[in-house]
Simulated scan of single mutants.
Amino acid sequence: MVYSMTGFGRSMKKNEQLSITVEMKSVNHRFCEISIRIPRQWIVFEDKIKKAILQYVKRGKIEVFVNIEGDGLVKRKLHIDWDLMKEYYNSLQRANEQFSLHDRVTLSHLFQLEGVAEIIEEETNNEEMEQLLLAAVKEAAEQLAFMRKQEGEALLVDIKTQLSSIEKSVQAIEEWAPCVIDHYRERLMKRINELVPLPADESRILTEVAIFAEKADINEELKRIRSHLKQVAATLEKDEPIGRKLDFLVQELNREVNTIGAKANDSRIAAQVVEMKSALEKMKEQVQNIE
């Protein structure tokens, strides 16, 4: 099964207290990298969120956005420092006496003084809330995986088209390659006869043809291309992340095609090399997006 590394997933879960929205998107990446944006008080669930996503994704850069709204996020408590309030009160009373003032000390004044009263937020430890969050993460991850699967199916069709094109070019080269030596010999004889009126040295011509044949021999390259094509086809059938292996095989195919282009001094073979390089370039673009 071929999976793309591009996808998007979204889920919303609610209960009486909370509304949780999870969105995630993924793009190409050499490894698996998950970044999560979540309210600070819920960051304790980050590892569990990552583990849930890793059940559906093995490679790619995944960005996760978690939005949580509701009254059940934190518990708020009012904390009053009674000792400090008493100190303030006594100090104000002494100031009134010392400076002959008649200001009244009221509760509203005391509560406004620094450090007397503050609201403390306590994290809510609610198992139901955690389950709601992870359910939203799972559903969003399933949607993400489904989109990546659909994208992967389209990539698979295109890659198989390029493989078929390369196979046709290989077959054409295999059929024409044996004729290259004969054509070279004919061209060489014609050229020599044009330049030298005397009969050509047959042994010298045979030597030159043999040297050319050795330099232009592409049988090994063609065999390796055939082998790599079989490996690509077999890899596409595997139910595991295959992007890196396919990337390596495309590089190896490109290496062999370049060698053929450099060794085969023939216009027909050169034309097939151009076709194969074009197909490999398209494959490379597609493979870069495979998990």
Rank of each mutant, 00 (worst) to 15 (best):
S4A: 05
M5E: 11
M5L: 06
S11F: 03
S11I: 03
K13F: 04
K13P: 00
N15H: 03
I20E: 02
I20M: 07
E23G: 04
M24V: 00
K25I: 00
N28K: 06
H29I: 06
S35Q: 14
S35E: 13
I36R: 05
R37K: 10
I38K: 02
P39V: 13
P39S: 15
R40Q: 14
R40E: 15
I43R: 12
F45Q: 09
F45V: 04
F45T: 05
D47F: 04
K48F: 05
I49E: 02
L54M: 14
V57I: 15
K61F: 13
K61A: 12
V66Y: 07
E69D: 14
E69V: 11
E69L: 11
G70P: 15
D71I: 09
G72H: 13
G72F: 13
V74F: 07
L78Q: 14
L78V: 15
L78H: 07
H79L: 14
I80D: 02
D81M: 06
L84N: 13
M85F: 09
Y88S: 08
L92K: 09
F99M: 05
H102D: 11
D103L: 05
T106H: 07
T106Q: 07
H109T: 12
H109A: 10
Q112S: 15
G115W: 11
G115N: 14
A117V: 14
A117K: 02
E118D: 12
I120E: 15
M129A: 15
E130M: 10
Q131H: 14
L132I: 11
L132Q: 10
L134P: 03
E139R: 01
E139N: 02
A140Q: 00
Q143K: 03
Q143R: 00
L144A: 02
A145K: 14
M147D: 01
R148M: 08
K149G: 06
G152M: 01
L156K: 12
V157G: 05
D158C: 05
Q162C: 03
K168E: 11
S169Q: 09
Q171I: 09
Q171W: 01
P178D: 10
P178C: 06
C179V: 08
R187C: 09
M189E: 14
K190S: 15
I192L: 11
I192D: 00
L195M: 10
P197C: 00
E202D: 08
S203C: 01
R204T: 04
I205N: 06
I205E: 08
L206F: 09
E208Y: 02
F212T: 05
A213V: 10
E214I: 04
A216W: 02
A216L: 07
D217I: 10
N219T: 15
E220R: 01
E220Y: 01
E220A: 04
E221T: 05
R224N: 08
I225T: 07
R226Q: 14
H228T: 12
L229K: 05
L229N: 13
K230N: 14
Q231P: 09
Q231W: 05
V232G: 00
A234I: 02
E240Q: 15
D247H: 01
L249Y: 12
L253N: 04
L253Q: 10
E256I: 04
N258F: 05
N258A: 08
N258P: 09
T259W: 01
G261Q: 10
D266Y: 03
A270K: 09
V274T: 02
V274C: 01
V274R: 01
M276C: 08
M276Y: 02
S278A: 08
A279D: 03
K282I: 11
M283G: 08
Q286E: 04
I290Q: 03
I290A: 04
E291T: 06
E291V: 00
